[in-house]
């Protein structure tokens, strides 16, 4: 019976979330894209690295659904494998920047002595434009997928930290936190078990948007040739490689560009939907 207690709440949340058809559609589209990419080894029509000189720059057709690139590699297969990296980096950045941002934001919101220095640090970090800071960090850390995740998490963690700090400052003053402290619950436990669950909604919303921004930033870095090592295909590298053939083979940049745009758009729609569903007061303003 205990499960049913939260079931109506969850059902209402899902009803609210998917009451907008755009959000439902975005969720379906993103799930399908993600599923196809994860299952790439089974669903990809060809080996993404197999070259064929005769198939060079083949237009999309029956043999090569989305065409073949300058090395005669199957674009559809590369698109699926590249999606694993592009989506993986986005998800990784959303998770890591949330963890770091939560830690910084909770400390700044809870310990007044730390608030000043941490807030100024967050301000300074946010003064750097995202791509520029990411370029600098990746150039120093080196261009692997993990380093790109670390670099972009450093770039986006301050955004989470700012939201967490602001929410913590409000929640900290509420009676139940005071009660927990009076009962002798340790400060870290109050922070994680009492404050965090109450501020998780804005974090989830922001993390969804960071997922989207990180995918765009990663694509930008790969396009500039300063991101993940070009031997690993990502949607951004595919556009960069296809650039040289812009006049002869537009499909080389068309499909990876569409893949990025569709995924990012879906994430932004889901982010908007989550914001409205998690905070119904905001919904009326839209």
């Amino acid at each position: 019976m205990s499960r049913t207690s939260s079931a109506p709440v969850e059902a209402r949340f899902l009803d609210l979330l998917f009451s907008r058809r755009a959000v439902l559609l975005a969720t379906i589209v993103l799930s399908v894209v993600a599923l196809l990419c994860v299952c790439a080894p089974w669903v990809a029509p060809d080996d993404p690295a197999r070259m064929s000189v005769r198939a060079r720059l083949t237009e999309p057709g029956m043999t090569y659904w989305l065409g073949a690139d300058a090395f005669g590699r199957d674009v559809a297969s590369r698109l699926l494998y590249a999606g694993r990296v592009s989506l993986g980096v986005g998800l990784g950045v959303a998770a890591l920047s949330s963890l770091v941002g939560i830690a910084i934001g909770l400390c700044a919101g809870f310990f007044q002595r730390l608030d000043g220095p941490l807030s100024r640090l967050v301000d300074a970090m946010m003064a750097f434009p995202d791509i520029l800071l990411a370029i600098a960090l990746v150039s120093i850390l080196g261009g692997s997928a993990v380093n790109v995740i670390i670099a972009l998490s450093i770039v986006y963690a301050p955004r989470i930290a700012r939201i967490v700090r602001a929410s913590t400052l409000v929640i900290r003053e509420l009676p139940f936190v005071e009660a927990a402290t009076a009962l002798g619950v340790s400060t870290p436990s109050v922070m994680v078990r009492h404050v965090l669950p109450n501020i998780i909604s804005p974090i989830i919303v922001q993390a969804t948007f960071i997922f989207a921004y990180a995918m765009l930033a990663e694509a930008g870095l790969s396009f500039l040739g300063v991101g993940i090592d070009p031997s690993t295909p990502t949607w951004g590298t595919m556009v960069n490689e296809g650039r040289q053939y812009l006049d002869q083979a537009l499909f080389l940049i068309l499909f990876p560009g569409l893949a990025i745009s569709v995924s990012v758009l879906a994430l932004q729609l889901i982010g908007d939907g989550l914001r409205d569903a998690l905070d119904p007061r905001l919904a009326k303003d839209l």
Partner: peptide
Amino acid sequence: MLAASVPSFWTGLMLQ
């Protein structure tokens, strides 16, 4: 929202 989702380099290449 669409304009914010499309990578600027891609828009640039297409218009180019």
